[in-house]
Amino acid sequence: MKFQTLQQLIACCSSDGVSIGQLMLSEQAKETGKSEAETFELMADYYNIMKEAVRRGIEEPVPSRSGLTGGDASRVHQYMNGGLPSLGTEACTALAYALSVSEVNASMGRIVATPTAGSCGIIPGVFVSAQERHGWEDRHLVMGLFAAGAIGYVIANNSFISGAEGGCQAEIGSAIGMAAGALTELRGGTPEQAVHAVGLALKNSLGLICDPVGGLVEIPCIVRNGFGAVTALAAADMAQAGVRSVIPSDEVIGVMLEVGTAMPAKHRETAKGGLAQTPTGRRIMNNLYGANRGRKENGEGETTQP
C-alpha cells in the first residue's frame, strides 16, 4: 500500500484526485493482482452479510450461545417505534442495528469482522441505518467499506486492533474511528474531514479496557457496539461541521499504542480484571464454567510442551 499514515492517505487522495474508498480499492487490486471488479464483488458480498445480520437481530430476539445475552436489539427497536427516543430516530436506529449484529455474533451467527468480531456491530449499524435514511445504493456503501478498511489498515499497522494486545480501545475504538471516517466520506465530506472524524472519535475511547465477563464476547461488548455506533455519528457530524482534531489523528493513533502497551494484562481480554472480576462477573463465570474452571479438563488435562 502506498500510504502508511492518515496524513499520507489524505495526500494520496489529493494527488490522485480520488476518494479514500476509491484509493483503497485501487491499491487492494494492485496488491493482490486481482481486478477492481473482482475485489469490489468480495466487499459487496460482505455488505450483504452485514445487512442480513442487522435484519436477524431486529426481527426476533437472538439469544447468545451461553444464554447470558440477547434480545436487546429488538427491545431497543420496539421502544424506538413506540415513542420518542432521546437520541432521535436516526441515531437510535444505528444503536439498535449495531446491537443486533453483535447479538447475532454472540449466537454464533454469521457476521463480518470489522475489524474484529468483538466490534462487528458498529460499522453495519452506522452504514445500514445511514443507507435507509439517505436512500443510497449498495454500491455507495461498499465503497464506504473500502474507506473504513483504509482507515483501519493505518490504525492496525501503527497501533493495534485486538483487545488482547491493546484493550477495548483497539477493537471498539478502532471500529468507531473507521465508521466515523467512512460516514463522513459517504456524506460528501473531504478526505481531510474524514480523517478529522477518525481522530475525534479515537480520542473518546482512549484507555478503554477489555474486560469481558467470562472471557465471552457479550458483556460489555454488545452494548459497547451500540454506544460505538452512536459515537461514530457524533464524530462524523462534528467533522462535517468543521470541528478539527487539534491533535492530528496519526498522533492520536500513537497515543492508543502508548496507552494499550502500558495497559495491564488483566485488562486485555483475559477476564482477570475489570467487569469480569466484579462479584457478579465472577458469579456468572462460575455458573458458566463451574468447578472445572482453572482445573484439569475431564481429569485428562496435562501440562506438557506443545
Partner: peptide, 18 residues
C-alpha cells in the same frame, strides 16, 4: 496487516475472530 480484507473480514460465524 497486509490488505483491506485483513481489516474488513473475514466473513465468519461468531463469536470471536481469534
Amino acid at each position: 496487516f497486509k490488505d483491506v480484507f485483513s481489516i474488513i473480514g473475514p466473513s465468519m460465524v461468531g463469536p470471536s475472530s481469534s
